[in-house]
């Protein structure tokens, strides 16, 4: 198995190539630029397309165009760029075009800064753009998962014909860790529903406009049915020492890594705490949290934000147990010791 010490951002690109991604369209932004740079380096070497677009808006529309051709395609950005891409993501969702969007979150709002935050949760999990749609959101917390979940993102995007996010923070994107890459190489293929520029697909139409209200409602109902199926089948969750936990901490991305250390520190002090990490932010592991509510006395949510995911935790818990929130913003990342102090107050 090919093994490499590699940044999470670069692992995304090699994984995308191994997944048969045909084209990358992007725009530079810190802390996601290594993705565009690695794509610029490697995509053309293996006969794939790389274009640095004139804007985030254009890059996602190029994704729309290539996805309409029925191939695997991706882009990447960070908060401010994702805001700009929301138009195109809504169109991809509406036209049921599969694509993968990596979001390496930074500080906001506005220009904010380039330090890690998790403040894009609302805009990626709750829709972000206009209309009744959802995107699958995968949240890796290691370089290995940046590889594995990127490949999974392409599979899910194809299976459900929907945009899929790979969302993480600047730390997981910039950090180097060992990644074991798969040896299986998928070569680019084309879906039959795509417009290939040939006679066989001449009747195909990629479209999100339904002028007639009944038709548009029917289209929306079809989308909702698909989202319901995703919610049933595609929840991914990771747990650490929850078996006998009396307290539950919940976090994703870099926070879940820090919380893992915090859990060990707390256990050394006799505090029975376990960690739940949503791997899919949507669909959200609400059922699993409800199940753990039967046993744990309290829940602590930690995010690098003002408290965005905690809303979904509270919706899942429905008041059964107290849900506390601890957040840092602006790029300050708490240490494991700092979070131990938070847990001790529970």
């Amino acid at each position: 198995m090919p093994r490499e010490l590699i940044k999470g951002n670069e692992a995304v690109v090699k994984a995308a190539i191994l997944a048969g991604c045909q084209a990358y369209f992007g725009y530079p932004i810190t802390p996601a630029s290594e993705i565009a740079e690695a794509a610029a380096k490697y995509f053309p070497l293996v006969g794939r397309t790389f274009i640095q677009a004139e804007s985030e808006i254009a890059s996602i529309q190029m994704v729309y165009g290539a996805a309409g051709g029925g191939v695997r395609v991706m882009t990447a950005s960070s908060g401010p760029g994702i805001s700009l891409k929301q138009e195109g993501i809504s169109y991809c969702a509406g036209a049921e075009l599969p694509c993968v969007i990596a979001d390496i979150m930074r500080g906001g709002p506005g220009l904010g800064n380039i330090a890690p935050e998790q403040s894009d949760y609302h805009q990626v999990v709750k829709g972000g753009g206009h209309g009744n749609y959802r995107c699958i959101v995968l949240a890796p917390n290691s370089a290995q998962e940046m590889c594995d979940l990127t490949i999974k993102a392409f599979d899910l995007a194809d299976q459900y014909r929907t945009p899929v996010y790979v969302v993480t923070d600047g730390y997981i994107g910039q950090m180097m860790e060992q990644v074991n890459f798969p040896t299986a190489v998928q070569h680019p293929k084309r879906h039959d529903w795509g417009v290939h520029g040939d006679d066989a697909t001449r009747k195909n139409l990629i479209n999100s406009i339904y002028l007639d209200p009944d038709e548009l409602e029917e289209h929306n109902r079809k989308l909702q049915k698909k989202y319901a199926e995703i919610e049933r089948k595609e929840v991914l969750v990771d747990e650490y020492r929850t078996r006998d936990a009396e307290l539950l901490v919940i976090g994703y991305g870099i926070i879940s890594r820090i919380l893992r250390t915090t859990v060990d520190l707390a256990r050394e002090q006799g505090i029975k705490v376990g960690l739940l990490r949503p791997v899919t932010l949507w669909p959200f592991p609400a059922k699993r949290i409800q199940k753990l509510c039967e046993r744990v006395q309290a829940i602590q949510v930690v995010e690098l934000s003002n408290g965005q995911m905690v809303e979904d935790v509270r919706l899942a818990v429905e008041g059964r147990k107290p849900v506390k929130f601890y957040g840092r913003m602006g790029g300050s990342v708490p240490s494991a010791q700092e979070l131990l102090g938070v847990i001790r107050k529970l």
Partner: peptide, 14 residues
């Protein structure tokens, strides 16, 4: 012919 409907202004990118 094969057809992609595009967002306002984005046809050249598509």
């Amino acid at each position: 012919v094969g057809n992609l409907q595009a967002a306002h202004g984005r046809a050249p990118a598509v």
